[in-house]
Amino acid sequence: MSAALTPAARVAAALGHREGDRVPFFLPANMHGARLLGVPLTAYLGSAELVVQGQLRLRELLGHDAVSGFLCAAAEAEPFGGEVVVHEDGPPNTGEPPLRSAADIERLRPPDPTTSPTLRRSLEATAALRAAVGAEVPVLAGGIGPFSLPAIQVGLDRWFELLHQHRPLAERLLRVNEAFCASWANALLAAGASAVALAEPLASPLLVPADRYRELGLPALRRTVAAVRGPVAVSTASAPCLPIAADLAGAGVACVGVSAADDLSQSKRILRGRAAVMGNLNGLEMRHWTPDDAEQAVRAALAAGGPGGGFVLSEHHGEVPFQVPLEVLQAVAEAVRRWGTYPLRWADAG
């Protein structure tokens, strides 16, 4: 058996479409650190220091291949004048969309991400995590893609109306968002992140017709990725991805996150040699999983995604719900250790 790789080398092998020592995995349990530290969720997400401790404890417990300084998606409403509404039993949410009129969009300039207290806290956590883990462990960072950000800037209803009926205004907003998204990603990389994962659910044909996304959203993603000084992953955040997966890879991303609704083997075939595949365990279902369910789900994902490298096992949305028991996450981790060691002979055998 080959010597164990560091998490960074294991992930690099996967992104390079090679089989490392085992399939790398990461469970984005952004809130479970609160449970491990025994502190209320709002206190946890309100403190970079607690998030760092929580992420390190989680890695000790699960042995997964990264840590993350991501706090919440709602934070990205702040630089645009929106608010973050916190809860003790689940992730923060945004309040009312801050941009209310066409004039608000016309006069909008890309804001400085560091004007937001929550985003600053995320930068702080990222830097402290890098200092704590050194070069051996990837530090992940997260952001919202330029085509999805309008959902919290103007509301999804208004965004759909702009896309279908006021195209110049939609394009104007996208230009601002590309610039914002790239500057936020670059700030995260400068703070020590290894890669930035963008949640771009509006790229999914569940939400916007693929031809419209290709016309408007994809060029925005391509320009964003080109302006980011480091590796970018993009995911449709649990919405179906397959019909546009090749387009996303063509935008220059290193990794594409697919959903539980997407066929993993097919995703691998489509993306082979172009982008690694990340996914695709269903976090909402995990609430009910027995250790046996966890093992079955992991085995199925490994068999479909693992062979040949180019695969990172993860949850498909980018956040495991707070209500998922830690025992389920441990069972997932245990199953990856048990079945994920390369070469995956058991999977080749059928």
């Binding site: 209803d157 759909f160 109306e161 896309l163 279908h164 044909p205 569940l206 939400l207 916007v208 017709p209 693929a210 419209r212 179906p240």
Partner: peptide, 17 residues
């Protein structure tokens, strides 16, 4: 058709409105 993955939600929304 949306449930079957043939249409996007933006179309469902515009149609409803």
């Amino acid at each position: 058709d949306w449930e079957r993955g043939l249409l996007a939600l933006s179309q469902v929304y515009m149609a409803g409105r």
